[in-house]
Amino acid sequence: MTEQLDSDGRLRHLLTLENLPREIICRLLDRAGQIRDTALGRTQRRNSLDGTTICTLFFEPSTRTRSSFQIAAQRLCADVLNFDASTSSTRKGETARDTLKNLEAMGVRGFVVRHSDDGAVAALAEAAGEGTALVNAGDGRSAHPTQGLLDMLTLRQAKGADFSRLKVLMVGDVAHSRVARTDLHALRTLGAGEIRVCGPRSLLPDDATLDGCVVGEDFDALLEGVDAVMMLRLQRERMEEGLVSSLDDYHRDYGLTAQRLARAAADAVVLHPGPINRGVEITDEVADGPQSLVLRQVSNGVAIRMAVLEALLG
């Protein structure tokens, strides 16, 4: 895979959190914390990317991630070009690589790329010229590094920087989730004390993804005493594939209700990457309740993406 770091150990691209040094992750989290007020429009925009053009090159639909990157770039005074695959020359047969090279020839220096294929963003980074930086905004089932960073920032704000004291439970469709893989990499790198993973056997991976985790199918048992619950979206196509019997059965066994949440630590927090399937993986009472950090995750996304763009292009 394309090297993410240059010869001086600085970020060239952000493709994955796997094997990314702890100090770089912490530096990005620290920076995001420092500029959060600017990210939310409470203080004047920074001009660190004034004159830089950034393209959101999305080959998959997105609401939160795309909007968040666009706001982040604008807060840094960058010019933003939004690419829509459905109305582009990709429908005429142009490859993603040719699309990137043509935009690069127009002076675009930063690309935020979402793609349905595993490894697609790394392949584009390999083709990119000197001085061009790519950010993986989600590829296949592999990685979503800025989501992982914003989740870690949210956890750190709620629980402090010492992750070694934390018991974290991840619940749901881990096998098909790039968010799950990314968060697991980040939690290990930051030294989480105990990582628990729960879901039906059909939705749990059988590879090294769960190494070092406490894994089981009993949601109620694994909830006992945890400090954070990270719920994952149930992708409804899993029902068509026969991996889930019904939405009602899934909610009965793996839906987070207020009654279930009472098994966790009294000050436990709830995260969800969105979009939420209310009444399936989580109830309204929990999603909108005092222990939910879902909207804080969204707001932290702008700060994290500002920090990433600044580190790569500033």
Rank of each mutant, 00 (worst) to 15 (best):
R260L: 07
N277F: 10
A258C: 13
R196K: 09
D249A: 14
M239T: 12
T257R: 07
T209N: 08
E237D: 07
A192S: 10
L256E: 02
V229A: 06
E224I: 15
Q235C: 01
D218C: 09
Y250H: 03
S245W: 13
A258S: 14
E241D: 15
L210N: 01
L204F: 02
M239L: 13
V270L: 02
E224L: 14
P205I: 03
S246C: 03
V229I: 02
V244W: 04
R260H: 03
L247D: 06
M231V: 05
R260F: 05
V215N: 04
C198W: 04
D267K: 10
P200Y: 09
V229M: 05
P275V: 12
P275G: 12
V226W: 03
S245G: 14
I276A: 11
A228N: 05
R236F: 08
I195V: 07
G225C: 06
G255V: 05
E240V: 13
D248R: 10
V244C: 01
D218F: 09
G212D: 02
L204N: 00
V270Q: 01
P275W: 12
T209A: 08
Q235T: 00
A268K: 09
A265P: 08
S245Q: 15
A208E: 11
A221N: 15
P275N: 12
A265K: 13
G193D: 04
R278S: 10
L232N: 02
A268Y: 11
V244P: 00
M239V: 14
E241M: 12
L243Q: 14
L232G: 01
L271F: 06
Y250R: 03
V197G: 00
L247A: 06
R233T: 10
T257P: 06
E241R: 14
G242K: 05
Y254A: 07
I195R: 01
D207W: 11
T209K: 09
I195Y: 02
I276D: 13
V197F: 04
V197C: 02
P275L: 11
C198D: 06
A264R: 00
P275M: 13
L256R: 10
L243T: 13
P273E: 10
I276E: 11
G199Q: 01
G191M: 01
G274F: 09
H272C: 08
L247Y: 08
G255T: 07
V197M: 03
Q235Y: 02
V244G: 00
R252F: 14
V270M: 02
V226M: 01
I195Q: 03
L271N: 03
N277L: 12
M230K: 15
L261T: 02
R260P: 03
C198M: 04
G212V: 04
A258T: 14
V229Q: 07
D218Q: 06
D207I: 08
L204H: 00
M230P: 14
V270Y: 02
C198H: 04
T209M: 09
R238V: 00
G274Q: 08
D227V: 02
Y250W: 03
L234G: 04
